[in-house]
Design a protein around this nucleic acid. Structure first.
Lengths: 334, 334
DNA sequence: ATGAAAGCGCTAACAT
DNA sequence: ATGTTAGCGCTTTCAT
């Protein structure tokens, strides 16, 4: 492989000078700069990252932590973040972490070997070890789609967003509204809270009893959740699902049971993933500003890394209720 | 940060010995090994990757190249590959490359700075520069979901798979079958070939005229494709979409036009992405063995890297027709 | 079995 | 403006 020394030799100068040129430093004769640039172009020389990384004590890469079982929303989000990070010159490295302690330990040890410039969390890390470590070695962390303490985070107001979704149902005339959510990750709980608050605001007590918790936020588990609701009786005219994928599963079961959506049961999702505007019926949902979240997450981290405006603590982005075809007023009792 | 020297000092030995222990080499006194291991555990020492990378002249990471506009199938696939790679001890680095020359050049230069252990291609690279480079520096490359020349590749028989999907429609009694596919990537063309062959086998001439090419393989473009077919008249009883996402878009338009699927028009997709078994109606499609592809891709690359069984050239995995609800016999003419 | 020393490719401090 | 030197953390001869 061709190195900085080779370039220096070919031009008849020292590695330092070549380094200066490569890094766009000042103090190098214009003519010589041209020459060096020319040889670099000819030879296709590219600095070795490991070597730079070693002396600069940083890796130029940021880690993205996401759950082992990442859902479509997260899939869309991470690729947006990746794109932005790339534009700032960072590479990305993925850390899929399971929702258990041992996996978190392993993650931590991988982390240590990397000298990451920064870390983006798309899932909550439980263990304090992680936070202790990043605090100790001073690695900037920003969390997207949730928040914790007073660390930098970019997210929507989950609770209020859920409240708005449920309120849409209530405004339509629904009172008996059930909810499907997951037990992992705090957003499931926050969305449940919003649900309960909206229900109570409408005078519905015991709203918590109308919630079914499933393991993951996927269509498969949406089916489980819906079946459970059905098993307990048809005492509802609407379902609020904590994610669009859950909603897709719920609608699948409803269809199979011959219960038309939205005529007999309205369905509201959360996230507004790509597919939601194509499925039949089109899903009413709460849109998270995916692009904005991705952009701000990358930007905030970049600022933290470069030390510019580290004060960006907790950024709440606006959500939006997207009314489509899966919601309608409840049927009049015959 | 704690280094190998620190460990050596604490134990009262030399860095060399610590290195031997860390790398599981022989020739180190059992007692001393214990001691060293103990200190390593206590201190939480983890070798610096950049330093190892520099001296070993490799990065322990493999690059995954995927299209800028990657579809759901690719999303699912890459996370499976990532998981397997991880189990072999590799990190992954993503290269999103646009489908144009300049982006490929940029990709190449990033590549050079990385000393990647290997590369996985999820999208075809056009420029010869890439192949020249990897051949020159001897980086193993394996391609998943398509093949090229006699390089290692893991994929299904696209042409035959498409043939089988269309034949299913033909066996159901359909003759007037239209197709929607994309122009980018060879798989779109291969699937089109299979379509034409199946049509001709059924005595349908001019099948190529029944194909609409769209830009991307997404639901949005599935809508465009379907609208175009409709504009040209209702002279078809079935549609074969080159990807499930395309099919979702096509079904969306059909629904909006009041054309029931599968009663008036049958739809067949390709890939069997997660969502396909949940949507309404459930999509008949050709399943690619996602897990197997992911597993074999990672394994093959690992073999190439370690030099074991490099002869794994071109691996064709079996596809499977999954018959669900979106296909039915054509209506009898009234 | 173990340690000393060299060197991987680069940058930065220092000298000129 | 430019070259010399040291050193980043590790592995690997080469001695012993």
């Amino acid at each position: 492989m061709i190195s900085i020394k080779d370039i220096a030799n070919q031009v008849g100068t020292s590695p330092s000078t070549v380094s200066r040129v490569v890094n766009g430093k000042k103090y190098v004769n214009a003519g010589k700069r041209e020459q060096i640039l020319k040889v670099i172009a000819e030879t296709g020389y590219v600095p070795d990252k490991a070597a730079r990384s070693m002396v600069l004590r940083r890796s130029f890469t940021v880690g993205i932590v996401l759950p082992d079982t990442f859902n479509m929303f997260q899939r869309q989000l991470f690729s947006i973040i990746e794109r932005h990070l790339d534009s700032f010159g960072y590479h990305t490295m993925f850390f899929f972490v399971k929702f258990d302690g041992s996996s978190e330990e392993e993650f931590l040890s991988r982390l240590k070997s990397e000298k990451l410039d920064g870390i983006i969390l798309l899932q909550e890390i439980q263990g304090a070890n992680f936070y202790d470590y990043v605090a100790k070695v001073n690695i900037p962390v920003v969390m997207a789609t949730f928040n914790r303490d007073n660390l930098a985070s970019i997210h929507v107001n989950e609770e209020q967003a859920a409240y708005d979704g449920v309120t849409h149902l209530i405004n339509l005339g629904h009172r008996k509204i059930n909810m499907i959510t997951g037990s992992g990750f705090s957003f499931g709980l926050q969305r449940a809270k919003g649900f309960i608050r909206a229900m109570e605001a409408a005078g519905m007590e015991q709203a918590a009893d109308r919630i079914t918790f499933v393991q993951y936020y996927t269509a498969e588990f949406g089916m489980y959740g819906m079946r459970e609701h059905l098993l307990r009786g048809r005492d509802f005219t609407a379902v609020f699902a904590a994610t669009d994928e859950l909603a897709v599963g719920a609608m699948r079961v409803l269809k199979d049971e011959g219960i038309p959506v939205p005529e007999d049961v309205s369905v509201v999702g959360f996230d507004d993933i790509d597919i939601s505007s194509y499925i039949i019926p089109r899903l009413t949902t709460i849109r998270q500003p995916l692009d904005k979240i991705g952009e701000q997450t990358a930007l905030t981290l970049h600022k933290c890394i470069t030390g510019a405006g580290v004060n960006a603590a907790d950024m709440i982005l606006p959500h939006k209720l997207i009314i489509r075809e899966s919601t309608a007023p409840p049927k009049k009792a015959p």
